[in-house]
Design a protein around this nucleic acid. Structure first.
Lengths: 236, 236
DNA sequence: TGCGTAACTTTTGTCGACAAAGAATATGCA
DNA sequence: TGCATATTCTTTGTCGACAAAAGTTACGCA
């Protein structure tokens, strides 16, 4: 392949131990934003040159990414960005829906004042992204909004699974949204508001129901995109 | 500290790439069986000598273990076996119970003939451990039994979280059971049988209820052990 | 021309060595 | 003797180099 023109080099001198985190964060973002497409080969040497460091810290970042399932490693052979499994999405939807329900309910139960601030801030960012018709920002801020809710639920086990699912979801959505111009985004903003209200009111039952409904809404939307229901609809 | 007398060296010659897996598996088992106690320091150099390899593969194994939360790493400082958090067990119990319910239900829904074989084999191993009064074997085979059920549910997202929870549970139980001589083990064997029956019958609702009851049973048991309800009970 | 084999290339896995970052220890001064 | 500072020691983080695997190309023979 020809030389890939990626971002510039970070810094000629960096602190001891910052290299791994830097590479890990950046690579993770590039994978989730589909800058690195699923199936793309990942070359350690190339990354080492790009970041001006040896292969050792690069390797550690890759091991961590592999641990989260974001990259796949063929022993003694190439390593590449993990593929999205379109064939069985049902388990993904099941898990996503359940985590939406659980985290929203727990947030209504365990929230503290500072959580509400964080949640509201994320919601405003999401609303701003909708207003600006910025599909990428919508995807990212929506995930951040729900992650903030999960954080308020204070269950690290659920949170780690939910984060992983939201990441995977970011990749799916990013794959489909070129532009985002239907009426759904505003509906999401409204649904978010009702969810926040339920959390503020400590109404766990309502929060759970709203979380479920919101999840199902999103699942339906993704399924519609995958089936391609919005395609060609001309009179013959 | 004095020289730790651990297991012997594996092999003078090993295949390329087998080193990491070997160290990872063995260290993982030692952590889960509390051969390495929570808080124990982990010395890379010492491990390198013990396994007759350089620090590089040792380090990779440690990074993976850290990714699963089994060890904690202080930057530029020591790395040690992760501590068990006794202060907030509630999130752990919440997550464990939910995963018991979900995986058992999904198993009743998605099981295949080969799954039933595996589940029954694990159940027999558990029953044998109970009969032999082997507490360690009980803990391990019980976890394997439920992992097999989860496997039959075919949801990799739930499975990975559940595995992590079962691992954590292994450490908790291992910490308390010196001997296991009350009537509970036989009750667990019986409950397992009813769960298997529900899965065979594809009765998802029943499977979910039984999974929940079983989980609550286990949670109560752990809580009792932690509170120390079984202690000193003499007439004064 | 087709196919099996050998040499080459590419990429990963492992190694030994060195430097940085703290912690522990020693030193100097009041 | 008590405390601040300097020194040593231990352990981690990073590096460059080499060797093993597996793919790829080149070659020879039928």
């Amino acid at each position: 392949m020809t030389a890939t023109k990626t971002k510039a080099i970070p810094a000629p001198e960096r602190k001891r131990g910052s290299g791994v985190k830097f590479v890990y964060d950046l690579l993770r973002d590039e994978i989730l934003d589909l800058v690195l497409l699923p199936g793309s080969p990942i070359d350690e040497v190339q990354l080492a040159e790009r970041f001006q460091m040896s292969r050792t810290p690069i390797r550690e970042a890759l091991v961590r990414l592999a641990g989260e399932g974001l990259i796949d490693t063929l022993p003694n052979r190439s390593t590449m960005v993990a593929n999205l499994d379109f064939l069985n999405m049902a388990p993904f939807f099941d898990a996503l829906t359940l985590m939406y329900r659980v985290t929203t309910q727990l947030a209504a139960q365990n929230r503290r004042p500072e959580d509400l601030e964080a949640i509201r801030a994320r919601q405003e960012e999401f609303a701003a992204a909708v207003k600006a018709q910025d599909a990428l920002a919508m995807i990212a801020t929506n995930a951040a909004f729900h992650a903030a809710i999960a954080e308020a639920g204070r269950n690290p086990y659920f949170n780690s699974l939910f984060s992983r699912l939201l990441d995977e979801g970011r990749r799916f959505l990013r794959l489909y949204y070129q532009s985002y111009d239907d009426r759904l985004p505003q509906q999401f903003v409204d649904e978010h508001e009702t969810i926040v209200a339920a959390i503020v009111a400590r109404d766990t039952a309502l929060a759970e129901r709203l979380g479920k409904a919101h999840a199902e809404q999103i699942v339906r939307q993704i399924q519609k995109l995958m089936i391609g229901e919005d395609r060609l609809d001309i009179a013959l």
